[in-house]
């Protein structure tokens, strides 16, 4: 017994190191669980608070660019409105209720983002209080951004396209063939589209849009353009796409709420279950 105690005492430093390192590895292995734990939820609120202060300062510096983008968007929206206002005379327009809208947009601001890691995240200054919940889509005026991972009362975290865990169904706009968007961790401006069969004809510069299959995003949100493609040994293309959204200077985004997602999910569950 005495010998054992002496041994422990002698190697106590190494022992403590191994214990702490094991704890760290357990945290690492249970990464997704850790993300949802209570301590993390508390921290989401705290870091969200701090990051929104930093975000304020950074946003101020890029006001001019943001303004220009908003003016552009305003112009296109106004043009579209013009078309619809002419149609009002001929079409019957009753009072619209919530039932008539499938998707609803919640504007939000990015208060923190990482871009150059393998598992990047965004933090938004909108949470449950504002109707932002897990698994909602996030878009910017440029295109697809990501999917909400978790939300607390006032903040939410988003898995952007540039995270190795990201998966989303998307299609080629010109011929409607659908594949899956994943990110391989190389560059924050490129992603890849997989599972497009070899007989589809592709062209450099083709636009990729969301397919709307997942009920997270409406159909046709722009994702990116085809940068290059090669035919793998199997029957599928390996397509590199250039993303429309530039994550380095992303500030204003919209969270998409699909009022009928639950209904669609429920229905689909009935088939498989």
């Amino acid at each position: 017994m005495q010998k054992l105690l002496n041994l422990i005492k002698k190697y106590s430093y190494l022992l403590l190191f191994l214990i702490l390192e094991t704890v760290a590895v357990i945290l690492l292995a249970n990464g997704s669980y850790f993300q949802q734990s209570r301590i993390h939820n508390f921290n989401r609120n705290l870091s969200g608070f701090i990051y929104s202060r930093v975000g304020n300062a950074r946003e101020y510096l890029s006001l001019k660019k943001v303004n220009e983008a908003l003016v552009l968007e305003n112009r296109t929206l106004r043009n579209r409105l013009e078309v619809f206002s002419r149609m009002i005379d001929t079409a019957s327009v009753g009072k619209k209720t919530r039932e008539d809208y499938t998707y609803f947009y919640v504007p939000a601001r990015v208060v923190h983002s990482s871009v150059f890691k393998q598992y990047n995240f965004l933090t938004l200054n909108r949470g449950k209080k504002h109707g932002v919940f897990k698994d909602m889509g996030v878009v910017s005026d440029q295109g697809l951004v990501g999917i909400v991972l978790e939300s607390s009362k006032n903040y939410s975290t988003v898995i952007p396209v540039i995270n190795r865990n990201f998966r989303l169904s998307a299609k080629i706009k010109s011929n409607n063939y659908a594949g899956i968007i994943v990110w391989e961790g190389d560059s924050p401006v490129l992603a890849s589209l997989q599972e497009i069969p070899y007989h589809v004809s592709l062209h450099k510069g083709d636009t990729i849009v969301t397919s709307g299959f997942s009920a997270i995003f409406p159909e046709g949100i722009p994702v990116g353009t085809i940068e290059s493609f090669t035919l793998e040994k199997g029957n599928f293309y390996d397509i590199t796409i250039r993303l429309f959204t530039t994550f380095q200077n992303l500030f204003h985004v919209n969270v998409i709420r699909n009022y009928y997602r639950e209904e669609q999910k429920q229905l689909e569950r009935n088939i498989t279950g």
Binding site: Y13, A24, L27, L28, S47, S114
Partner: peptide
Amino acid sequence: LLIAGFLLGFSIDLFEHTPGMHTA
């Protein structure tokens, strides 16, 4: 030293939303 390293890494992990990497 080890405990300080653990707490320091863990705090940074919390802020960077990374599980355990900085801690390790």
